[in-house]
Design a protein around this nucleic acid. Sequence first.
DNA 1: GGTCCTTTGAAGGAT
DNA 2: ATCCTTCAAAGGACC
Length: 537
Amino acid sequence: MPQLNGGGGDELGANDELISFKDEGEQEEKISENVSAERDLDDVKSSLVNESENNSSSSDSEQNERRPQPRADLESYEKAREYFTEALRRQQDGGFFKSPHYPGYPFLMIPDLTNPYLSSGALSPSARTYLQMKWPLLDVPGTAVLRDSRSPTPGQLSNKVPVVQHAHMHPLTPLITYSNEHFSPGTPPAHLSPEILDPKTGIPRTPHPSELSPYYPLSPGAMGQIPHPLGWLVPQQGQPMYPITAGGFRHPYPALAMNASMSSHFSPHIVPHHHHHGLHQTAHAYNTLPSSHIKKPLNAFMLYMKEMRAKVVAECTLKESAAINQILGRRWHSLSREEQAKYYELARKERQLHSQLYPGWSARDNYGKRKKRKRDNKTDSTPEDFSARHKKPCVQYLPQEKMIDSPASSHGSMLDSPATPSAALASPAAPAPTHSEQAQPLSLTTKPDRHHHFPLLSKPSSSSSSSSSSSASSSSYQPTSASGRQSTPPLLSRPLPLASLHASLLSPPSPFHQAALHSHHALFQSQPLSLVTKSAD
DNA sequence: GGTCCTTTGAAGGAT
DNA sequence: ATCCTTCAAAGGACC
């Protein structure tokens, strides 16, 4: 499969276009989700729309309010935006964006493609597609900046670009949407307001990179200096893939994108040249920032999770991320190989981009960023300890879990039609979602090794691990986690959330064969609830 | 305010 | 080569 380094023109775009968002697997997912969604979709939509309307309106008002007050509550805005995104996606449910997988792209705030720096003529259809994909959230600031490149009038800030959807938008837009914390749509472009008033002192201060970065790369100068408007689209020798996506569009690595890509691929004077001194300083600061600023690139599951979380949350009343994640984990397993491959590919690109942006960065750099987790001790913690931390009774997860699980169970097709343990079909980018997983969606036992003594199902490990090992046999189990999951107390030693319990009960305790899986599945389909209920007791 | 929970995947150190 | 640990996102729960 062609890789990014293939140097093949708009390979990225082409690749991404190849990743159609209307594949069959999606249909399958849609069907299952339709089955799962006990709430009327219209209700969901309306509720979401209502929410979004409130949120969006509040967002607008917030933006208006924030303009004179750049320091915004990013979190609340983000939440509102997320709601809006989801609502928007659902509102546009009828067409290309019907897929539940890619809630992000409907929110595209397409940059002004007529912008001289993004000359439409320079954009091939695929390029435009990918461009839009990469900039799903280009909002006021971005557009303003883009236009600003010609006549930077602050008044343009108010020109909110209407949501534009591109028919060929890539479904996996979250590629560049998962660094929410850096996105501040309500904040004026950095180049227009490079200095941020300290909320406490009221004194202008040099903004933190994370505050400025979203707009940083959108600086007209930087944009204009880009050798090719799609330089990132058309990988060149040493050319970053996303030289102009570092911010504004919620680039995952906005803070240092400028540092790593811009500064290394553009004349050093370029960036500060088009900003006020504050930004200049900031730009300089970027170059001195510790690499720990940098977040890890999201893996395939994280990307999937990011996309699907809102949907899962919307479908059930669960709000607890842990429970949501369990659901997402099962859904992830229930995805078809092709669907997973998309995310693997996306994650691979993310990693590649990340490595290009931050060549010297290592995941190890972030070690210790969090305080030493107590999980190490928790593995030895008593059930009482665990229970104490979970006031919510497991039963509380039951209804929602059932609701969400029903789709998983509906994936019986996978069980009923066991995947042929043929050679790995997934692209190299996809660490081969194992057939065992595909064939055993019910063995989605979340962290089996962590929660109980069931052998862990072989996982699609990193690229280093061949898919053959796991795909060779759909019933191939490995005693330990391929990813080194920590050993945990026995199954019954700690009360499991129903999601886990549910799955664990249905998880083959040993290298079962397909027949066993069928049995499990049949059982699950027939009495999933009773099973869970009993186990919960 | 910090940490945990929970998921999978990736990375890198340790063995 | 394999194992083990940590982190990535998310947000409620907990301390």
